[in-house]
Amino acid sequence: MITLRPANERGQASHGWLDSFHSFSFAEYYDPNHMGFSALRVINDDTVAPGAGFAPHGHRDMEILSYVLAGNIRHQDSEGNIATLPAGEFQLMSAGKGIRHSEYNGSQTEALRFLQIWIIPSTPGGEPGYQQKHFGSREGLTLIASPDGRDESFTVRQDACVYQLLLSPGQSIALPLGAHRNGYLHLVEGALSVEAMEMSPGDGAKLEGLDSPMVSNTGKEPVRALLFELP
């Protein structure tokens, strides 16, 4: 079964310095029909004004993945990690038993846009962790996170895998999902079909009970998306 989560039905928040679209219930946006999917709890598409950002705040018991789409993030946390993430870079912060961090737009002139993604860990607690990497721009599927850190991916504390999906116009690929696993596809840019169901930028698709579903770039521009393989 494929269930479309249209971009124009997402929650939206505008705070002047921040514009955010919520695929799932978050902060003041609440929809009991969209509380997450399997272990995937949050996908926020955030645009942050120049020089602005999220002041220091705390998290615990959450795997927090950031994917920079434009601009750069200036990160600092209570574990002593200080980093800048340029466009195309991924960051995975394991909150564990507790961590505080801040995320700011590193530019005073250009907007920052990034995806903020939360995955519920399989077990609570543990020491906080930090990982950061650019995984390149290879066409097809690139493993970003996995439970065992295979193929130089991040290690995520859940029986879940995250893939970057890049397709040229006309290109198709089978997704690495079995009928016993759940999948969630989030389209960042381009036009994509999933087993003949069309997706537009910002759309999400829940994939349930499907064995190696096919996806195709049906537009004239490259496709960029994230695939979550979930329990």
Rank of each mutant, 00 (worst) to 15 (best):
M1V: 12
I2V: 14
L4E: 04
A7T: 01
L18T: 10
D19L: 14
F21W: 13
H22Q: 15
R41D: 00
F54Q: 08
E63P: 00
L65P: 02
S66F: 03
S78P: 01
E79Y: 07
E79D: 13
A83M: 10
T84A: 12
L85K: 09
A87E: 15
F90Q: 07
L92R: 04
M93P: 02
M93T: 03
I99E: 00
G106C: 10
E110K: 06
L115H: 06
I119A: 04
I120S: 12
G126K: 11
G126L: 07
P128Y: 09
G129L: 07
Y130N: 07
Q131L: 11
Q131G: 06
Q132P: 02
F135C: 03
F135Q: 02
R138V: 05
L141W: 03
L141T: 00
T142W: 06
L143T: 09
A145G: 03
S146T: 10
R150A: 07
R150V: 05
E152S: 13
S153H: 06
F154C: 07
A160S: 14
L166P: 00
S168D: 10
P169F: 13
G170H: 11
A174I: 03
G178N: 11
N182H: 13
N182C: 10
L187K: 02
V188L: 15
E195P: 00
E195Y: 01
M197P: 00
G202T: 02
G204S: 08
S212P: 01
K220A: 15
P222T: 04
R224I: 01
L227Q: 01
E229R: 15
L230R: 07
P231C: 06
P231M: 07
